[in-house]
Nucleic acid binder design. Sequence first.
DNA 1: CTGTTAGCGCGTTCAG
DNA 2: CTGAACGCGCTAACAG
Lengths: 367, 367
Amino acid sequence: VPGTPRRPTLADVAAHAGVSATTASYILNGRSEEMRIATGTQERVRSSAKALGYRVNRTARSLRTSTSATLGVVTDLIASGQYASSMLRGASAAAHQRGHLLVIGESEGDPLLEEKLIDEMLERQVDGILYATLVTRELTVPDRLTSRTVLLNCLDPRSSLPAVLPDEVQGGRLAVDLLVDAGVEGDVVVVGRDPTPGAVAGERRLQGIEEGLAAHGRRLAGVVDCDWTVALAARAVDEHLRRHGTPEALVCLNDRIAMGAYQALADHGLVVPDDVAVVSFDGSDLAQWLHPPVTSVQLPYVEMGVAAVELLRDGALSAETAQRCRVEGTASGGEAVYLPMPVVVGASLPMPGAGERSRRTTTHRLG
Amino acid sequence: VPGTPRRPTLADVAAHAGVSATTASYILNGRSEEMRIATGTQERVRSSAKALGYRVNRTARSLRTSTSATLGVVTDLIASGQYASSMLRGASAAAHQRGHLLVIGESEGDPLLEEKLIDEMLERQVDGILYATLVTRELTVPDRLTSRTVLLNCLDPRSSLPAVLPDEVQGGRLAVDLLVDAGVEGDVVVVGRDPTPGAVAGERRLQGIEEGLAAHGRRLAGVVDCDWTVALAARAVDEHLRRHGTPEALVCLNDRIAMGAYQALADHGLVVPDDVAVVSFDGSDLAQWLHPPVTSVQLPYVEMGVAAVELLRDGALSAETAQRCRVEGTASGGEAVYLPMPVVVGASLPMPGAGERSRRTTTHRLG
DNA sequence: CTGTTAGCGCGTTCAG
DNA sequence: CTGAACGCGCTAACAG
C-alpha cells in the first residue's frame, strides 16, 4: 500500500540480476534444482530480489494460476460469538501455516447476504470455503457451495461435503465419568434443553449422559427444562430445588446455565461442591470465573478450525488429528469428523481420596 | 470454486450479446449513461450475462486496476477476544456496504508473524489495513504501515495515522453521572488498576471518574488496586470491605472485576443495589448475566469498526459518526477519533423516586 | 455510441 | 540451463 514508488516486479529483479524473468521465476519459486540452475545465478537473483525488496504480486499469480492462496470463511455470527471465535483462530493459524490467508464474511443469518458473500468470495478466486455456524446444528448448505467446501460446526444431511463437529456424545459420557470419578452416587439431574431449532448439541450431550449413566447401571434422576440463559436457568433450578429437593449432582448443558444454577444454589444456601456437585459444558472463560470454577467439558473450537483447514487444503486430516478424532460416514456419502471434547478442570466436584479414580480424571483431561 | 465448467468470461458475454468486450464492460460496470449506450444494447448484454451466469473475475480486475475491493485486518488477538470481536462485526458490515471483503490476520502478539501477515496482505493488493489491538493501548506501528492504515483501539504517538478509540474519559464521567443520578451521595470506591503495559483504558476511566466527581464537588474515597480478573478482584474487594467498611458505591473498571466484586459483596451479606451500588465498564454479556445485572459503560466496538472503515475507505467519517464523536489532533499530526461509550442499563443502582434525575439517565443511554 | 489495441505481472510452453 | 513469446480476464486509451 505504499504510495508513489512502484513496487519492483519480477522483471525488475531479473534485469537487476542480468537474467530473464523466467529464470528469476524458477529460482524464486524453488524450482532451481528441477531446472538445474547454476548456484551463482541463484544467489545473484536472490540477492537482487532482496536488494530491491521484491514481493510477488499475488494478484498476477492468481490470474495465471486460478488460485489465490486464500480461504473464505462464511459464517452466521461466528466471529462475534463469545466462544466460537476460537474456531477462527485455529483456522487462521492452520491456513497461514499453508501460506493462505482468510477472508471472512458474516451473513448475520441473512440468506441473501450469505449468497452475496459467497459470490464475492468466488469472484476473488478463493481456494476453498469454510462454512461455519455459531450453533452446532443441521442445515442445508447454499447451492453455490458444491465443492471445495468444509462444514464447520454444522451438518447437511443431504450433502456429501465433509463436516467437522464436536463429539458431543463423547462429551456427555465424559461428564458422567467425571461425576463417577468424583464419587457421586446419588441423583444426577440435567439442566437445560436446547431451544434452538435444528440445534443438536443439547440432544447429543443428553444422549451421552444417559449412555454414560447406563454404562454404570444408573439412570438420570431428571431433566430441568429451561432455555440456555443465566436468568432462566436460575429460576428453573430454584423451582426444581423447591419441588424435588437437592440432587447430588447437576449437569448443566452449558456454562451460562451453570452460572444460573450457581445463583439458585447459593440462594438455597447450598455450597458447591460440598452440597451439590456441578459439571458443565462449553469450557468457556465464564466457567473459570465462577466461584468455585466449574469443571466443564470443553468445545474443541481451535482444533475444529484446524481440522477443517486440513480437510480443505490437504484433502485429509493430519495424522495427529486423525488419531484423536472419530470419523463417521453420513447417509449422503459425506464424512463427518467428530473431535473429542477435553475437560477444563475446576473445583465444582468433590475430591475423592487420592485414589485410582482421580488419576483417571487426569487421563481424560489429556485424552 | 466450481469444477470443470469454466466460468464464463466477459468476452463470452460480449460474444453472446454480439458486442465487444469493452461495451459489455461499460454496461456491466454501470457506465452506460456516461457512455450513452443504447438501451437495447444494455438489455441485451445484461440478459446475456444473466443467462450465462457471468460474474466478474476480480482477480483480473485487480491486476488491471491495482485495487482488490478487500481490506486487511491485522490484529494481535482481537478476533479471539471475548469482547472485541464486535469490532470485526462493525468493520465487516461497513466494508461489505462498500463492496469490500475483509481478510484477517492474527499475529498472536508475535512481531515477526505480524510482519509476514502484513506482507501477505500487501501482496494481495489490499486497499487498506485496519491495525487493531485487543487492549486499548499505545504502541509503535510496524514500518510497513505508512499509508492507507487506520489504527483501531490503539494509538501511535509517533505516527500520523488516524486512530479510532473509545472515549474512556467520557465513559468515566458517565459512570459518575449514573451514580449521582441514582442518588448516591456517600463514598465512591474504584476497583481495579490496569496492569497491562502501555494500556490506557484504566487510567483514562479513572481520570474521567475523578473529573466527574470533581464536577459535583466530590472526591474519590479510594482505589482498590487489583488485577483485572474475577478472583483477584473478589479477594481485593473482600479485603477492602474488612479494612475500610462498606462504601456506598463501587465503580468496577471492567465487568470481570464487577463479577468478583459481586462475589465479595455476597460473602459479606451485602445486597446490590440496596447496600452497595455498582457501576462497571465494558458492557459485555457478562454484565447482564450477573445477578442483578450490572449497569455498565459499554465499549462501542461495533461503532469503532464502522468508523475505522469510514476513515479508511471514505477518507473521512460519515456525518452520522462525526456528529457523535470527539476528534482530537495528535502531536505527530494524526487524528484520533474518540467514540462515546453508551450505557447498558442493569439493576445494580438504586432507583431514585421517579424524578428528573431518572430521566437524565435515559438521555445518557441514548447519547 | 462502439470496436480495436494495449498492457497489468506472472507462469508456462518451446526452441535455442 | 536460458530467453522469447504467449495468454490469464479485464479495463483504459484511442480511434472510428
